[in-house]
Design a protein around this nucleic acid. Structure first.
Lengths: 214, 214
DNA sequence: GTGGGCGCGATTGCATGCAATGCATGCAAT
DNA sequence: ATTGCATGCATTGCATGCAATCGCGCCCAC
């Protein structure tokens, strides 16, 4: 369906920074850019509005720019949800409902993320980091939580892309990934929940301090 | 905008059970029922699909019927989010950022909910109960959490409307509301979070046992 | 020079036409 | 009788026309 194509392509363009926060976008422009008529583009823009990636502004829409306060809110929600998914994933592991291969994949992604970060391949690190957290959410086998998280991740990604900077303590972040992985692999649900919550809030704090530096 | 009108009217019809889970719905039918053209109705149906209230099914859409397993997932997410909003509300209260009148309103709604439940005015009790939880989410001042909760509440409401039965222990539910209220009013954030989480999961358990009875 | 008001033009929102699609129904053949 | 297929039709998805709207710029007055 062209409507879905329009949605995913526009979403992609927003998430990779081609349309940065604040960028203006009209039905007609987008229709011309994607070479389709206004109708499917119109539906896509409405969907993106519902997703919180753009917001109506006079004529057309603009890519949202979350203010620091809104970002804090987003991280709070993300923290609550990832705490839940980590707990659920660990519980499922304890119950033997998780395939060993999935845990291997998770470890691989964690390693790749650490390497990319250490090497300064930041764009790649962002993708891998998100994949790491997504894999955990998938292991939790809770589609509602996964969907809610996708929305939050998208919104956070849009508003932090421009300030791409290496984490001040890369080893710290990687260490937390390792701890989280270990807790899940061991089926320690409560610990996994605690680590996930702390890790997400830590990530926010790091971004904060780097904003302050800038 | 007619598109929004269509969305809210259709949403209302679904949430109040006029279109029960499983009901089929086509663009043309809905357009005729709402007396507007297919275009705005079409957009509304897409939005409702994104909201998880209907899902495409062959031609047209059907109102979603969450299976028990999906309901469990929904309650898990709801529990995580309400735990967060309760914690945030309590924290804001401790910081003196909550108007006393808002707490009075919250208490009034809690009382009204308890009365409606005790009197067997179930439809009313559902509305009041939701308003109680919503007020807390508003006190938390986290719009993302509020939006995510609205979605979850909608989905849960649709799939539990038909099994409207008085809670087996109404005093228990009302008591939990009181405890939650007290924790927030006293600014005890951690306790509020704990009570909220337990209360939501309790609600789910009650529904479960009543399903079992039926 | 600045503030306010007015008019024009771009852009949206809705309606409808048209073609494509997929589902249901019925018929035929085994 | 049941299954497979073909045909017709309801319904969707997209394109485009048309009217209403809103923003923007310009001009005038102060």
């Amino acid at each position: 369906m062209q409507s879905d194509v329009a949605w995913s392509r526009l979403r992609e363009l927003i998430l990779d920074g081609t349309y940065p926060p604040g960028a203006r976008l009209t039905e007609m422009e987008a229709a011309a850019a994607l070479d389709m008529s206004r109708t499917p583009v119109r539906e896509a823009l409405r969907a993106l509005t519902a997703d919180g990636l753009v917001r109506p502004s006079g004529r057309g829409v603009v890519v949202v720019a979350l203010e620091p306060g809104d970002l804090d809110e987003a991280y709070q929600v993300r923290s609550a949800l990832e705490s839940l998914t980590a707990e659920l994933a660990a519980t499922r592991q304890r119950e033997g409902r998780i395939a060993p291969a999935d845990l291997v994949t998770l470890r691989d992604v964690a390693t790749a993320t650490a390497n990319a970060t250490a090497d300064g391949r930041l764009a790649e690190a962002v993708v891998l980091n998100r994949r790491f957290h997504r894999l955990i959410a998938e292991l939790a086998a809770n589609t509602m939580a996964l969907h809610a998280l996708e929305r939050i991740w998208d919104q956070i990604q849009v508003s932090t892309l421009r300030s791409l900077a290496p984490p001040s303590r890369p080893a710290h972040v990687s260490g937390q990934h390792e701890e989280l992985l270990a807790a899940i692999a061991a089926g320690r649900a409560e610990e996994a929940a605690r680590i996930a919550r702390a890790h997400v809030l830590d990530t926010r704090a790091i971004t904060h301090s780097e904003e302050a530096q800038a």
